[in-house]
């Protein structure tokens, strides 16, 4: 397990040769224990995020306390009692920065930037609305902050990632996301990323539209593959989705409204434990029509 830390230590000792790395290893062990059983939106173990943030900081030449703070930055306040004063102060500074804004000490700001940089690198796994919100916020506040601190590489990467995310956020990708929300929780992120990626490789508008329609009909069957107990309800829902899609494309408003109602009902029946399914379906159909 410790070899996950090796690249961080290598980057750290490149700037600080001969320094004792034991505190970093200890911080890593503490973080690994704390985040055990927690996962990122991407499905990765949470500790990978802590490691990535520490790596970004070590690559920037951060000192030992800041690398440790990177590893420990998502520790809840009540589990920080064992930390050294310097590390605890940086983490407290990050809390203050996130709740009250500037000013903050340079290490705190670097930590914030490193945290956001890794979040932006893995932004594809969060919901599209949040993607756009975070990207906008990054462009407005964090990119200028990075420029001000003189970490140009971080500033440039944050700007590119944010701009790409906003540009990619087309209505089609948003419809896809809403369709995916009809799937049971826990499977949504995976299929959304998979389909957004495939969608992005398609060259023409027509091919993308066809892909989206195909994926829409696939959603109930995929839900079924993961929960075979729902076979008959899923068939009913699939039939209604198919009929609905056809009616929406072919005919006038009244027919489309009937189909819409049927779809909302089907979604409600299929995902009865999830009371927001119907409204998500309505959102999806709205975005589809636009």
């Amino acid at each position: 397990m410790d070899d996950l830390l090796a690249p961080v230590l290598t980057a750290y000792t490149a700037t600080w040769p001969g320094e004792d790395t034991e505190p970093i290893t200890a911080a890593y062990r503490l973080a690994a224990r704390h985040h055990h059983g927690q996962f990122r939106h991407s499905g990765e173990p949470y500790i990978r995020h802590s490691l990535a943030v520490a790596q970004i900081l070590a690559d920037l030449g951060a000192d030992r306390d800041l690398v440790c703070a990177g590893l420990l930055h998502d520790l809840s306040p009540d589990s920080r009692s064992a930390l050294s004063t310097a590390v605890a102060d940086t983490l407290a500074g990050l809390d203050r920065l996130e709740s009250h804004g500037l000013p903050a000490a340079r290490p705190v700001l670097l930590l914030k930037l490193a945290d956001r940089l890794h979040n932006m690198r893995t932004i594809a796994y969060v919901r599209p609305e949040k993607q756009v919100r975070k990207s906008t916020e990054t462009l407005r506040t964090l990119v200028p902050l990075a420029v001000g601190l003189g970490v140009d590489g971080v500033a440039a990467e944050l700007a590119t990632l944010s701009e790409d995310t906003i540009r990619r956020s087309t209505p089609r990708v948003r419809s896809l996301a809403t369709a995916v929300w009809l799937l049971p929780k826990g499977m949504r992120g995976r299929w959304q990323v998979e389909w957004t990626a495939e969608l992005a490789t398609l060259p023409t508008r027509r091919a993308r539209a066809r892909f989206l329609l195909g994926v829409l009909t696939a959603v109930p069957r995929i839900a079924l593959a993961h929960r075979p107990g729902l076979r008959w309800t899923a068939r009913l829902a699939w039939g209604l989705v198919g009929a609905g899609a056809l009616t929406t494309v072919l005919t006038s408003w009244p027919a489309a409204t009937v189909a819409l109602a049927g779809l909302a009902l089907a979604a409600a029946v299929l995902f009865a434990e999830d009371d927001r399914a119907a409204s998500r379906l309505r959102d999806f159909l709205d975005s589809w029509r636009r």
Binding site: E198, V215, A218, I222, L224, A225
Partner: peptide, 10 residues
């Protein structure tokens, strides 16, 4: 069709 391939893969 894509609508068929993903459920099969799942």
């Amino acid at each position: 069709a894509t609508g068929t391939i993903y459920p099969i893969l799942a």
